[in-house]
Nucleic acid binder design. Structure first.
Length: 647
DNA sequence: GTCCCGTTGCAGCC
DNA sequence: GGCTGCAACGGGAC
């Protein structure tokens, strides 16, 4: 007599019912019972840099999926387990007499480690594992095999794709699901190791209910932000398969938009509506299938092309091309693993002696802190993060990112170029950490890849192409509507001064209700009803020149993350910094410290509370690491007096 | 070795 | 809106 399969379907990055190759494989087993589960690991919840907006988006996705599962089977729903998969799954195998564990392939470096461990545990328990690829157009591992290494150009992806099977058509959502079995169980709850709580800045209470495996009511319900003790989300963008499919359908109903889309020509200043699809968060959480996106788009393009010969755009600038870039970054990560997410050991990432370099953990080689080689650079970094650089375009973008969790791709270019090779000369890993915390659509591979691209450390090398925070936005938005929306204190400024308000005469500034003054810490002027917007934190053209020279030098040295000089510190001898030392900070690239040695101070990325635009806090709120205090006209920094720079 | 190209720069000129 | 010079990179095709 054959035993009917009892299946655990483990949802991870596929929070949907449509086009789920994994779910189809599970149903094809004709199981006796099927438990749709999600494991929510407290260790991950506390230790991963994630702001309230992304948690909320995930919770939206889970709630929507749970509702949709119940529609297929009134006894079923998404069973959320609040324990690490590595510990809870073996217990479930036993308690629920499971025969099969089914999940979707995940090539993220950390996910591979986790899945490897889970697979071994399942094997030990005699469980059959079924794993299907549904996260990318092409299986990243196959892409890498065909390419013969990490995919570093879009041409490599396109050429490898030609040799791979066509992208499969999306699968329909199932019409019914088998019953879940008896969900009662008696197992010991494994509490996580002492928690680091990287998101303490977002947490307004220490929850205890969270620490129960099946939730406070024992019903495996999706947790709420309140249960997680996290401040409410501020983003208007909401998650879930239902919303994703509706948004996609709305876009597809405009074939002209779909077929003539060209990313470089889409305005980064557009909001309400934005100029791109804003479907990336759904691709990240899997509430939208990439194959559904691809084929709905491709079919629309083909049909449009028949009617309008030569008018449709093509990859890589068109919509399907955007998906190829996603696969390119996944391919790079699939090949390079953990080291793709950082400079150290990364053979493709150029070494550049940025300010605020990472201090890598000796054991894991992960950056845990950063070295404050230049106090001024740390202040620039915090001002960048908080949207108080004094450059309205940069600040508007960072405030949009912080409150809404999404900014246009070219906006990301602008702020990333500004932080790294085109302004502050700060380590791209600092920027990537902030994006990781705040972006709804944060994808490890795409984030690390794009930051390396923009910092011209990998993928891209024309470092002399620098985005101006003044002329670039003006090209799209002469009137500065974007700035008026996200930097409302400048709302009354005329278009002439909207991107460089410091050039306006003081009397005019006053009459427009906002004076350009200080460094972002000032909140009012003599208690009058006049707002304050900071002076630019540096002379952009001066910094541009300094960065260009420094990049030229770094390119001539030509060493990468896996060069021994990077690890042993002897890279310093290769860089002739002509006196621009560790503590000279204010101008020029600092002689950064990597590996063992540590600068005068160390910093850590912390979350600020995401509030509405009008309530955004100054950079102090983001906990200036070096403990900045106002002392007269000077900044006191843990005993060091740093003369304030004036333009 | 040379040439051409690379999803998304800028300023000045016409 | 399109062109060129800027000072100039790396990889691949030939």
């Amino acid at each position: 007599m054959t035993v009917k399969p009892r299946v655990l379907y483990w949802f991870r990055t596929d929070l949907r019912l449509h086009d789920s190759p994994g779910l189809k494989a599970a149903l094809d087993l004709y199981p006796e019972v099927l438990y749709p589960i999600w494991t929510w690991d407290p260790q991950y919840v506390y230790n991963t840099r994630v702001g309230p907006n992304r948690w909320q988006f995930l919770i939206d996705c889970q709630n929507d999926l749970s509702t949709n599962i119940t529609k297929l089977n009134s006894k079923s729903k998404l069973f959320v387990l609040r324990e690490a998969p590595q510990t809870v799954l073996p217990k479930l195998f036993k308690a629920w007499r499971i025969t099969h564990l089914v999940f979707e392939k995940d090539t993220d470096a950390y996910a591979r480690d986790r899945d490897h461990e889970v697979t071994n545990l399942a094997k030990k328990a005699g469980i059959t594992i079924i794993c299907r690829q549904g996260r990318n157009l092409y299986d990243p591992d196959e892409l890498v095999d065909i390419n013969g290494g990490p995919t570093m150009t879009i041409a490599q992806v396109q050429s490898a794709a030609k040799k791979l099977p066509a992208v499969p058509r999306p699968l329909p959502a199932p019409l019914s699901l088998p019953d879940p079995g008896d969900t009662s169980f008696e197992i010991d709850h494994s509490l996580p190791e002492p928690l680091l709580d990287r998101n303490a800045g977002y947490r307004n209470s220490k929850d205890s209910s969270y620490m129960s495996i099946a939730g406070p009511n024992g019903d495996f319900a999706v947790p709420t932000l309140k249960e997680l003790g996290i401040t409410p989300a501020t983003t208007p963008h909401r998650g879930g398969e239902s919303i994703a499919l509706k948004n996609l359908a709305d876009l597809i109903s405009d074939p002209n938009y779909i077929a003539t889309f060209s990313k470089p020509e889409s305005a980064p200043t557009a909001f309400s509506p934005q100029s791109t699809t804003l479907l990336s968060p759904h691709l990240h959480f899997g509430s939208l299938s990439i194959r559904k996106f691809y084929w709905d788009t491709e079919d629309t393009i083909v049909s449009f092309s028949k009617r309008h010969k030569g008018k449709a755009t093509v990859p890589p600038t068109n919509l399907t091309g955007q998906l190829l870039f996603r696969d390119m970054y996944f391919g790079a990560q699939a090949s390079l693993g953990h080291k793709f997410g950082r400079m150290l050991d990364n053979p493709k990432c150029r070494f550049i002696p940025w300010h605020l370099p990472s201090i890598y953990d000796d054991k894991t080689a992960y950056p845990t802190k950063y070295s404050i080689d230049s106090v001024e650079a740390d202040i620039w970094f915090k001002r960048w993060q908080s949207g108080t650089t004094g450059f309205p375009w940069i600040d508007g973008l960072m405030r949009q990112l912080r409150t809404e969790g999404w900014i246009h791709h070219l906006g990301r270019h602008a702020v990333a170029c500004f932080l790294t090779r085109g302004g502050c000369y700060i380590d791209w890993e600092r920027g990537a950490e902030v994006f990781e915390m705040w972006l709804l659509d944060h994808e490890v591979a795409c984030n690390a890849g794009n930051w390396q691209w923009l910092s011209a450390t990998a993928f891209f090398s024309q470092y002399f192409r620098i985005y101006s925070p003044i002329t670039f936005p003006a090209k799209w938005d002469k009137n500065g509507d974007f700035v008026r929306k996200y930097v409302p204190e400048l709302g009354k400024y005329p278009a002439k001064y909207i991107y460089e308000p410091w050039k306006a005469p003081i009397a005019d500034q006053k009459s427009w209700g906002c004076v350009i003054k200080g460094d972002g810490l000032d909140s009012d002027v003599n208690g009058l009803d006049i707002k304050v917007y900071p002076k630019p934190m540096f002379d952009f053209s001066e910094r541009r020149k300094i960065c260009l020279d420094a990049m030229k030098k770094a390119y001539s040295v030509h060493i990468f993350g896996d060069n021994p000089e990077v690890k042993d510190g002897s890279w310093q001898e290769l860089f002739d910094n002509e006196g621009e030392g560790v503590t000279k900070g204010p101008v020029g690239p600092g002689a950064a410290v990597h590996g063992s040695a540590v600068g005068s101070f160390t910093g850590e990325i912390t979350g600020g509370d995401a509030t509405s635009i009008s309530e955004l806090r100054p950079p102090e709120d983001l906990k200036l690491t070096a403990g900045r205090k106002r002392v007269g006209g000077q900044m006191k920094l843990d005993g060091m007096i740093q003369k304030k720079r004036r333009l």
